[in-house]
Simulated scan of single mutants.
Amino acid sequence: MSDGMLDKIRKLLAQAEDPACTPAEAEAFNQRAADLIAKYGIDKALLDAAKAPATKEDVDRRKIHVPGPYAWEKSALLYNIGEPLNVHTVRHNNGRRSDGYKVSMFGFPSDLERVELLFTSLLVQASHSLATIQPPPWESTVSYRKAWMWGFINTVKARLVAAESRAAREADERGDGPSTALVLADRKTLVDRRVEEAFTDLKRSKSVTVKGSGYRDGQAAGQRADLGGSRLGQAPGAAIGR
């Protein structure tokens, strides 16, 4: 990501996270940042495709530690950020959940950069929100926070999908390059192939059943979250469900 673009996105993040910022102002910053990061990803993919066909060797692998508490939900957040941005993440099934998880991320460098930036920022935003919200007296803090996280995760993913679709449509309307859908499909195929070669025994996890009243509050926080700044699996083990 260019230094200029990165600085612009970081400034939007800082503005949206400012406690003095009104909800309307934060939403405006959020939308602008989400559009910028989506536009960057689509434009970079099209530019690379115009230079030379992508190959499996262009796909990188990076490792990240997802810390506890709530490491399962945090790894699900990483998955749901990565999937719309063409990053495939694999959760390694080792150690205790309370210690967090090691996660491998596969993708093109520009997409990995987008995911890492967003994941770091959204973890901070989620932590700030959870620290200020009190669950109802009849519900355990753990149940409330887990439900909150899933509301946050699902809303963030929906917004990312919308931003990516919008950026792809605008790129096609300009008509100055190859088909966006074909370029992204080719890149996804290469990422999936790289994962399959690295892990031959991936398993999907069971779907998550969300319990707790925090889901709606998490959805609201996900709608406000700044998006400026995946299939998750275990090796061996299971992929995070949606």
Score class of each variant (00 low, 15 high):
46 L>A: 02
168 A>I: 01
154 N>E: 05
118 L>V: 08
73 E>T: 09
179 S>P: 00
205 S>H: 13
23 P>L: 04
120 T>G: 09
12 L>E: 07
9 I>F: 05
242 R>S: 08
171 A>M: 06
209 T>V: 12
116 E>W: 00
157 K>G: 02
88 H>V: 13
130 L>Y: 04
105 M>G: 06
65 H>I: 10
129 S>A: 15
190 L>S: 04
110 S>Y: 15
109 P>G: 11
237 G>V: 00
41 G>I: 04
215 Y>K: 11
108 F>H: 11
22 T>Y: 01
168 A>T: 01
163 A>S: 15
83 E>V: 05
68 G>Y: 10
89 T>G: 07
169 R>G: 03
155 T>F: 07
91 R>G: 11
60 D>Y: 11
180 T>L: 01
9 I>M: 15
148 W>A: 01
9 I>G: 00
141 T>P: 01
89 T>D: 05
129 S>C: 12
154 N>R: 07
23 P>N: 04
74 K>W: 06
52 A>E: 13
162 A>L: 07
220 A>D: 01
48 D>N: 11
181 A>E: 15
39 K>W: 04
205 S>E: 13
129 S>E: 15
154 N>S: 00
189 T>A: 15
35 D>M: 04
205 S>Y: 09
17 E>F: 01
121 S>M: 10
221 A>P: 03
45 A>R: 10
53 P>K: 14
23 P>Q: 06
56 K>P: 01
9 I>R: 12
238 A>T: 07
220 A>C: 00
71 A>W: 07
185 A>M: 07
40 Y>E: 08
